[in-house]
Amino acid sequence: MTICENNVAKIEIICKEFNYDKGELINVLHKTQTTFGYLPEEVQQIVAQNLNTSLAHVYGVVSFYSFFTMTPKGKFPINICTGTACYVRGAEKVLNEFKTLLKIKVGETTKDDKFSLSNLRCVGACGLAPVVLVGEKVYGRVTLDGVQKILDDYNES
């Protein structure tokens, strides 16, 4: 397992920003994940060393929160809101359609690294339920037929 000096330095800068305070672990991980896209094992160890806490503790936090991921996201990360409003308006069916079309489960990434699939709870756009996010772009009132259309937007690019 290797990690380049440059990435080690990046993590150190993030930890320094939070004063190497182990109480800020979640914030440090949040920012680290934004930087790297995911939190592989070696990144977690560098975080643990910098915050002077145990690797098991860091992994405990990473594995607890669904927001954190140890697998790299696709080029276009798809997030399906399964909050209450979206759920009652068919989010689960939409999610299943994505799973079928992409042939991956929640938390996984397609083999070509193009799409990854996750769910989240409420983006505050309940009026548009069910809501799907691809990267930063929001799709509202998504229907089953609409799923393929969304994917087509990115398959062409």
Binding site: T53, S54, L55, A56, H57, Y59, S63, F64, S66
Partner: peptide
């Protein structure tokens, strides 16, 4: 020692 932690949910 920090060998053990509660993991997952």
């Amino acid at each position: 020692v920090g060998a053990l932690s509660a993991i997952n949910r």
